[in-house]
C-alpha cells in the first residue's frame, strides 16, 4: 500500500521530468537553424493568420469590456474620495501592468493554444508528422517552429491592442457616460504612466507569457497520445497548465519588476 504510493509518486515525478526533457529537446530542435531560413516565411505568415488575426476579435471585445468595467468600478470607488479625476491613471496602470498582459495571455491560451495542441495532436494521430519525416522534412522545422514564432510575435501585439482598446473603453464609460473631465482623464494618466516602467515592463511580461503558452501548447500536441482520447486530454491540459503557468510566472515577474 505504502510502497505502491511511493512507486506512483516516483513514476509521476520521473515522467514529469522526462516530459520537461522532451519539451526542451523539441524547442531546441525547432529553434536550431534549419538552413532553409526565409523559405519558411510563408508558413510563418499562415500561422500569424491562424494564431494572431483569428484571436483579434476576442481580444478586442474583451479588452473593450474590461476597460469599461474597470472604469465603472473605479469611478464608484474614487468618487467617494472626490478623486474621480484619477480614473485615467487607475484604468491605464491596471491595464498596462497586469490585466493587458495576463488576460490576453489567458484568452490566447484558450483560443490559440488549444487549437495548436489539437492540430498538432491530430497530425500526429493521422501520422502526418511521420510522413513528413519520411520525405526528409523535419516536422520540428516545418510544423513547430513557425507556430512558435507566430505565438511570440502575436501575443505582445495582441496584449498592446488589448490595453489600448481597454483604455478607449475606459474613456468611453468614464468620460462620455459618467462625466469625468476628458482633459483630466488624459493628463493624470500621462503624468503617471512611464514608458520604461509600465509599458516596456508590460511588453516583457507578454513576451514571456507568449513563450510559456506557445511552448506548452506545442509540446502537449507533439507529445500527445495519438488517440482521440489522448488529443482531448492534451488540449485540456494545455489550457489548464498554461493558465496556471501564466498566473504563477506573472506573480514572479510582478515581484521582480514592481516589488
Amino acid at each position: 500500500m505504502l510502497i505502491n504510493t511511493i512507486q506512483n509518486l516516483g513514476r509521476s515525478g520521473l515522467s514529469t521530468i522526462a516530459g520537461l526533457g522532451r519539451a526542451g529537446a523539441m524547442l531546441f530542435g525547432a529553434l536550431k537553424p534549419s538552413g532553409r531560413g526565409f523559405k519558411l516565411l510563408p508558413l510563418l505568415i499562415k500561422q500569424l493568420y491562424v494564431v494572431g488575426v483569428q484571436s483579434l476579435i476576442i481580444i478586442v471585445v474583451s479588452g473593450l469590456f474590461i476597460g469599461m468595467v474597470l472604469s465603472l468600478q473605479g469611478y464608484t470607488i474614487l468618487v467617494g474620495y472626490g478623486a474621480e479625476q484619477s480614473l485615467g491613471q487607475m484604468v491605464s496602470l491596471s491595464l498596462l501592468r497586469e490585466l493587458g498582459p495576463v488576460v490576453s495571455a489567458l484568452l490566447f491560451a484558450g483560443r490559440a493554444g488549444s487549437a495548436l495542441t489539437a492540430e498538432i495532436g491530430l497530425m500526429k494521430a493521422t501520422e502526418q508528422l511521420s510522413s513528413l519525416e519520411m520525405m526528409a522534412i523535419d516536422p520540428l522545422h516545418q510544423i513547430v517552429a513557425p507556430r512558435f514564432w507566430a505565438g511570440i510575435i502575436s501575443l505582445p501585439l495582441l496584449a498592446s491592442i488589448f490595453s489600448a482598446v481597454g483604455i478607449i473603453g475606459g474613456h468611453l464609460v468614464g468620460v462620455d457616460w459618467l462625466g469625468v473631465d476628458s482633459g483630466a482623464f488624459w493628463s493624470v494618466m500621462q503624468s503617471s504612466v512611464e514608458w520604461q516602467e509600465d509599458i516596456v515592463n508590460g511588453g516583457i511580461k507578454s513576451i514571456i507569457f507568449a513563450i510559456v503558452v506557445t511552448w506548452i501548447a506545442l509540446h502537449k500536441g507533439y507529445d500527445a497520445v495519438p488517440t482521440s482520447e489522448g488529443i482531448s486530454k492534451a488540449t485540456t491540459s494545455t489550457v489548464v497548465q498554461s493558465s496556471l503557468a501564466i498566473l504563477g510566472v506573472d506573480f514572479v515577474l510582478t515581484a521582480v519588476m514592481f516589488g
Partner: peptide
C-alpha cells in the same frame, strides 16, 4: 490580413507610447 494585424499591433504600441505615456 496579417499585414493589417501587424499594423494594428504597432499602432496600439504607438498609441500607448505617445498618447498614454506621453513620452
Amino acid at each position: 490580413l496579417v499585414g493589417a494585424f501587424l499594423f494594428a499591433g504597432i499602432a496600439a504600441i504607438l498609441m500607448l507610447g505617445l498618447k498614454v505615456a506621453d513620452s
